[in-house]
Design a binder for these strands. Structure first.
Lengths: 238, 238
DNA sequence: CGAGTTATTGACGAGAGTCAAACAACGTGG
DNA sequence: CCACGTTGTTTGACTCTCGTCAATAACTCG
C-alpha cells in the first residue's frame, strides 16, 4: 500500500493549505459545539467549509441506522472540495470547532481566476481520491487489529498531533473510530485492551493513548513496508 | 447511500467523456492482451490512458499476496486522472483491450489552457472521489450478498452494458469480483448459487448472468431507497 | 456527588474465511 | 470434431474472527 502523502485523514498538504486558506480569511469564524452538524447529506452544497479549530467527522447513514464515517477533518482542512451539487455526507463536530465558510460559487470563481490556486486545488482533489483509496484497502483487507493500529499510526503521524511523552490525543469516541474502521465499538475496545496487554499502546482515559512501542505498532498496522522512510520520521514521540 | 451518478465504476459521465477524449485522439491505439499490465503501482505516472475498448482493472497488492481491486474501467474511461507523481495502482487488462495514451505533462497543459476542459476535468476528479466513497460504504457495512447484488446492479446500469433478454455480460473473473468486493472467491460463488436458487440471477457460463428479478436484486443490494428513481430507468432489460 | 453517557468485558452465535476435493468450461492439438 | 489438459469455479467440512446481546464498570458534567 502506497502512502503517497502524510495527509491520510485530511486531503490538504501543509504547504497548500495556506494558499486555499486565503479564500476563507474574509469570512468570519463560526463556533460549532461538539456533536452539532455543519451540513447534511443530500442538501445542496452551497458552501465549502474550512476547519479552523477542532475535529470534524463526515458520515453517511445507510438503512436502519448503519453509519459509515468516511473521513475525519482537522484544523486547516477543507470540507466539500470534491462536491458537485449535493453534500454526499453529513459533517458534524467531533469536538468543539471553529469553522469558516465560503460559497461554492465564489470558491470556484476564485480558483478559476487564479493560475496559482488551480493546481493547488487539483492537488487537493487528487489527495482526497488517494486517501479514499487507502481507506478502501484498509476496509477490504485488513483485520481489526491492523485497522486500529494503522488508524493510531496515522493519527500519531499528523504534524499537529498533540503528543508529549508519547501521549497521543484521540479526540473521537470509540463509536466514531468503529464506524470509521468498519468494525464495532466492542471490537475496538477489545483490540485496544489486547494491544495494552502486549504493551504496544496503553489507554489513559478515554481520549488519550500512550504509545509505548511505535515500531511494533507500525508493524502491526499491516503496511510496515511503506512507513519505512517517509512517514516514520514524521512521528515524533517527544 | 447516495448514488450521485450512474458512473459507479468509471468516473467519467457520458457527455464529458467526449470532451476529454479529444485529447487522446491524436495518439495511436495500443492493443493490450487480456491479463497484461498497462502500468505498475509505484512507477512514475508519466502517462494517462484512455480505455478505447475492453475492461481494465486497477489493483494494489498489500503484503503476502493480498490483492485489492480499487476500480474497473470501461470503454471511454480515463485512467490516471487523479495521480500526482506515481501510479497508486497496477492497471491490467481484464479482457483484450485497446487503449490510447497521452503524457501527463501535455494532458495537464491542455487542460490548463482550455476554459472548457478544466471544469470537465475537475468534474471527473470529483466523480472519482464520489465513487471511492460509495465503495468505502460498500466495504464498511454491506454483507456479501448486498455487495454482490449492488455490484451486479451497477454493472447492469451501465449505459453500454451488453444486455439482451436480461443477459448481462460479466467480463471479469470471480477472483476479480471477489477482490473488488472485499470477499473471497468462494463466497462470491456461494452467493451466486444462493441467488440462483432464489431465482434472482442465474449464471450462464462463466461470463454471463441472466437477470431474472431486477427489482429483487435492487432490494437486496442494500441501497433500495436510492435506486428508486435515477438509476432504475437506466436499467433496460431488452 | 450522582445521573447519564460512554466504554469494557463476557458469553454466545453467525457469517465469512480456509483448505481441499470435485466439477465445469475453455482452448488446443491430434 | 472430439479427447484431453489446463484453468477457473463450485461445493463441502471445518475454523475463526468478529458481531450481537447483555451486564458491569468507568468516565463526564451539571
Amino acid at each position: 500500500m502506497l502512502m503517497q502523502n502524510n495527509a491520510a485523514f485530511e486531503p490538504a498538504g501543509p504547504t497548500h493549505d495556506v494558499m486555499l486558506s486565503s479564500l476563507f480569511l474574509t469570512s468570519a469564524t463560526e463556533a460549532i459545539a461538539a456533536g452539532k452538524a455543519i451540513c447534511w447529506e443530500g442538501d445542496t452544497a452551497s458552501h465549502l467549509f474550512q476547519v479552523v479549530e477542532g475535529v470534524v467527522r463526515l458520515h453517511r447513514i445507510i438503512g436502519e441506522g448503519r453509519r459509515v464515517i468516511t473521513a475525519f477533518h482537522f484544523a486547516g482542512d477543507l470540507i466539500g472540495a470534491s462536491l458537485q451539487d449535493a453534500f454526499l455526507f453529513t459533517a458534524e463536530a467531533v469536538s468543539d470547532c471553529k469553522i469558516r465558510r465560503v460559497s461554492r460559487k465564489s470558491f470556484h470563481e476564485e480558483v478559476a481566476r487564479s493560475e496559482l490556486l488551480r493546481p493547488v486545488y487539483i492537488n487537493l482533489l487528487c489527495q482526497e481520491t488517494a486517501a479514499a483509496n487507502d481507506q478502501m484497502v484498509l476496509l477490504s483487507k485488513l483485520n481489526a487489529e491492523e485497522r486500529l493500529c494503522s488508524f493510531i499510526v496515522k493519527l500519531a503521524s499528523r504534524p499537529d498531533a498533540q503528543m508529549r511523552q508519547g501521549l497521543l490525543r484521540v479526540p473521537m469516541s470509540r463509536q466514531d473510530i468503529a464506524d470509521y474502521l468498519g468494525i464495532t465499538i466492542e471490537t475496538v475496545s477489545r483490540t485496544i485492551t489486547k494491544l495494552a496487554s502486549r504493551n504496544v499502546v496503553v489507554p489513559e482515559g478515554r481520549h488519550d493513548l500512550r504509545i509505548v512501542n511505535l515500531n511494533r505498532l507500525m508493524q502491526l498496522s499491516g503496511n510496515a513496508d511503506d512507513f519505512s522512510d517517509k512517514t516514520c520520521h514524521r512521528v515524533r514521540l517527544h
